[in-house]
């Protein structure tokens, strides 16, 4: 892309996002905040799907872990976001380290199903927390920012989310371009060669898994704060499927695709459900069509990304 053109787009985007709070009503602004939050999670998932060539069907578990950790810590009397948020993200990362360590010993379809099964296990843990409402969930008082930001001001929360999203986006771009990112892709394309030069693929994949789990946990923390309520549904397996849909609706392997896909998905499910009680049918249909008709870039790129299925096919 020509740099002039790219800069024009970036400036235009920045202007749009900066003006959004004044152009939109509170509902729409919250919808945009939600898009950004799911964008963070989808970028995390894209790191695995697009760069490590692994498809996790259980990343909602980390969304849930982040939300529950934030909710429980807040309930215990910690209010400051500066304390609660990092701790909650660390809980997500720790969960990802354990689940990733166990799941990454397998790959391909096996990896998909194992991540799904572990996520179900975590989902049942949430459901059995009677002190925290069990299946009904519990309310969270929004975390405070030492008086710097009013957590109940929708505009302030939007700008905070926007800033976090932007920082994560830029960091991820650096990560995938770094030697780590190169090794990750090398592991995907040819694990044996990477091992031959003394670099174990497992380690790189585990780091990517932890990073993506932590990002989903961060998204969970933000979503819990935006919603003010936490339920086991955050960690349900259809939610994991939706995260993958977001990655696909954008473009896998680009990082920005996660942001775009999350925005499309949130907008789509909002519009469809306002139009029809049978929105689920139409959402399913759109997904199937999107997959079938995607003969273009996404598919070609992804096909290249997945050497394992070519190996056994």
């Amino acid at each position: 892309m020509n740099p002039m053109f790219r800069n024009t787009i970036l400036v235009a985007l920045a202007a749009i996002f900066a003006a959004a709070p004044w152009a939109l009503d509170e509902f729409s602004l919250n919808l945009v905040t939600r898009m950004l939050i799911f964008g963070i999670a989808a970028m995390g998932v894209d790191l695995l799907v697009g760069f490590a060539g692994l498809v996790p069907l259980g990343h909602a578990a980390f969304l849930g872990l982040g939300a529950y950790a934030a909710g429980i810590l807040t309930d215990m009397g910690l209010e400051s976001a500066f304390v609660v948020w990092p701790l909650a993200i660390m809980v997500g990362a720790l969960g990802a380290a354990i689940i990733g360590g166990l799941s990454l010993r397998s790959s391909g379809l096996y990896f998909i199903m194992i991540t799904l099964a572990f996520a179900q296990m975590i989902y049942y843990v949430f459901q059995s927390l009677r002190a925290y409402g069990g299946d009904d969930g519990f309310a969270l008082t929004r975390n405070t920012f030492a008086g710097l930001i009013d957590p109940y001001d929708s505009r302030a929360f939007y700008f905070l989310t926007l800033a976090i999203t932007l920082v994560i986006f830029l960091l991820l771009l650096r990560v995938v371009a770094s030697p780590f990112g190169v090794a990750l892709r090398a592991a995907r394309d040819n694990e044996a060669r990477l091992a031959a030069v003394g670099l174990p693929a497992f380690g790189y994949r585990l780091v990517a898994f932890i990073l993506s789990g932590a990002l989903c946990a961060f998204a969970g923390v933000l979503l819990a704060n935006l919603t003010g309520y936490i339920t086991p549904g955050y960690g349900s397996w259809p939610q994991s499927g939706e995260l993958l849909m977001m990655v696909l609706l954008g473009t896998a392997g680009t990082i920005w695709g996660g942001l775009l896909g999350a925005a499309i998905f949130v907008a789509l499910s909002e519009v469809l459900s306002e139009v029809s009680d049978h929105w689920m049918f139409y959402l399913g249909l759109l997904i199937v069509l999107r997959v079938l008709l995607a003969g273009g870039e996404t598919t070609k790129l992804l096909k290249r990304l997945d050497p394992r299925r070519r190996a056994d096919g």
Binding site: V49, V55, L57, G108, L109, I112, G241, L244, M245, V247, L248, A252, H278, W279, M280, F281, L283, G284, L285, L286, I287, V288, R290, V291, L292, A294, T299, L302, K303, L305, D306, R309, G313
Partner: peptide, 29 residues
């Protein structure tokens, strides 16, 4: 649907069959 997916990456298979699941569940309604 599935016939077109055998040569596709896993994520396409997961999502297309997930989409089918949504369609059938609501289609039954």
């Amino acid at each position: 649907v599935l016939r077109r997916l055998y040569a596709r990456p896993h994520i396409d298979q997961v999502l297309a069959t997930f989409g089918l699941m949504l369609m059938f569940n609501e289609g039954a309604v």
